[in-house]
Design a protein around this nucleic acid. Structure first.
Lengths: 348, 348
DNA sequence: AACCAGTACTTTACCGGTTCACGGCTGGCT
DNA sequence: AGCCAGCCGTGAACCGGTAAAGTACTGGTT
């Protein structure tokens, strides 16, 4: 392992060739291509003509090296790949980021990592090596071990997550607590008393926040908030969790899930156990990708605009890099979107 | 729009600082860090110690500029983002690519583009600007308009798709035709006579190949191969297509889908129309992500190892960059994985 | 006529590495 | 002693741009 990156073959057109052909100095070409004053329209045209003739566009690597600018933004994601493939969230999120990056001709450098240490090391390399001009940090844990080394690194970064978790990094977040509370109150209003929750990994920040809010709200309503299961976000675990909840003596009549994959899995389990949705069991998903509308009945969900979320994150990152932005920035709270999978419990 | 990338603030540790601290020339530092001969073990240690003390690692940008190497591989995907989020295929594919790239400390530059022209321009910028050392080309169309300009560009690239489509680019492909034929023969062997197919966009290469193979095989078996619908790969279109197929006078008893999202949507439609799977309707998905195991009944699928597919593509790309590899390279044909969603048709 | 301001370029010095020709030193061999 | 071979390491050129200082020319003021 660790063989070096391959060499690129062939010789290429450079700014010098263009300058020579246009009969100017390379400085002039640089000025023209960054449309800055100091070149007459005539000359400018001649330069562009020469560049077109040679098929030249500026070498981004050299440009970055010299101009100290960042054409690339980094994003490392630490989840097993097979799981990621299933998370509609990330692709949607990424596409939002890309939309903003594209406006600035920037690109997204994506890396899947196995654990948080690998992630930290990666960011160090990226930043020290000037591969990226900044980064997006996701999936914060309670007392996240990445915070200290990354702060020490001094890399511009924006964190996705509640300010309480992100250790002082400028952050973009949604109010998971309120959303979780709304979910519970909605189900309670429908008449449910036994409400369960199938959440993400216990250590993961936003799962923790939702778990706490779930419990608090249940208590406020005088209900038992203890029916929560932590999973790894994978569909199969969601299925298993659902199965075990439904086999318990007084099974829940409603279940809230932490993403939509697990909710879909839950719906399948209900079908498999002969329970009718929503009469015997109400299901409420989270994130609300298209997947929720593809099941029968369609899944009610805590819905938010993940694409815009990504855009907001990217915009914030540019702000941070330019030094014009710090602090936390909240985007709209996920809103309840009722569909066919929630309803009043059947009278028993 | 088109504001430039932001400047990166702050001054950084460079190779000179390390050289100074270690009391050697920067050439020596370079030699040490590329573990090449010409530096004694003692000096080497001193250099590493200095680097560690200063928290230095080589600037990848400078390295690439100087060494003419490619630390970055490009991948542009041309599909609406909201759709991509749902395609388990891509994330899985990407994770396979990343596994191989990581071995070489390379990264993947990902960009979502709106159309093929934008994609072509992007590759030109990436290559001429030396942003990437090579690229992965996906989603080939019949007479793909990208082929000519990209060949002219001379960028090392590996194409994902059947050699007949990829215009002479070194390619990695699966035998979609055989797989489609197998799918049809399997359903026919179960006793199905009216088999339909819900495919991807008509222009998309592999959809076309599967469509042709479907029709041929159906004809070979003396069946009517005309029941094919082209969609945009989205779940909702899959649902609509399924609905319209099931409403036709002599509705099909089995449907083959081009991905698993549409198959899931199809299953929901069946449920919604009161048809039982597989008794009234058999469903066969493609790609076989975890999603297929999360429905009830679980979906039978044409299954292949997308992760490994990605690995193979990345390995091939390195081969192409180094000039040691050309031509087409086939990976295993998707294999039929029967689950609960296929069975003999109910006697009518 | 002397001075100044502004435009249009050119020159030169980087950015932070890699590479390679060259020189000093050591040690073995004749 | 003299010579050559290797190993270590240096220094400068180079990768392909950007940025800032410098030059030459133009035209308008006083």
């Amino acid at each position: 392992m660790n063989s070096p990156a391959p060499r690129i073959p062939g010789r290429r057109v450079t700014i010098n060739d263009v300058a020579a052909l246009a009969g100017v100095s390379k400085g002039a070409v640089s000025l023209a291509f960054n449309n800055r004053p100091g070149v007459s329209p005539t000359t400018r045209d001649r330069i562009f003509a020469a560049a077109r003739e040679l098929g030249w566009s500026p070498n981004q690597t050299a440009r970055n090296l010299s101009g100290q600018r960042a054409g690339i933004v980094g994003l490392a994601i630490c989840r097993p790949a097979r799981l990621l493939g299933l998370e509609p969230f990330y692709m949607e999120f990424i596409s939002g980021i890309e939309d903003v990056l594209a406006e600035r001709s920037c690109s997204l450098l994506l890396r899947l990592v196995r654990d948080l240490d690998e992630e930290t090391v990666l960011y160090q390399e990226w930043w020290r090596g000037r591969t990226v001009g900044g980064a997006i940090l996701v999936d914060f844990h309670q007392d996240d071990p990445r915070i200290a080394p990354l702060r020490a690194l001094g890399m511009p970064a924006v964190a996705v997550g509640h300010p309480a978790l992100t250790g002082g990094f400028p952050s973009v977040w949604t109010d998971d607590a309120s959303a979780a509370a709304e979910a519970v109150r909605y189900l309670a209003a429908l008449g449910h008393r036994r409400i369960a929750r199938v959440g993400g990994p216990a250590g993961l920040g936003h799962s923790g926040i939702r778990a706490a809010a779930f419990e608090t709200t249940m208590a406020e309503l005088g209900l038992d908030g203890g029916r929560q299961v932590a999973t790894g976000f994978v569909g199969e675990e969601g299925a298993r969790a659902t199965r075990s909840l439904l086999m318990s003596p007084d099974r829940p009549t409603a279940i809230v899930y932490d993403n939509d994959i697990m909710a879909v899995a839950g719906a399948a389990v209900a079908a498999e156990m002969g329970l009718s949705v929503p009469d015997d069991l109400s299901l409420l998903a989270w994130d609300d990708s298209q997947l929720c509308r593809l099941t029968h009945p369609p899944l009610s969900a805590m819905s938010h605009d993940v694409h815009r979320f990504g855009e907001e994150v990217a915009r914030t990152l540019f702000g941070v890099i330019e030094g014009t932005r710090t602090g936390a920035h909240q985007v709209p709270t996920p809103s309840l979107t009722p569909r066919g999978s929630t309803g009043p419990p059947r009278r028993m």
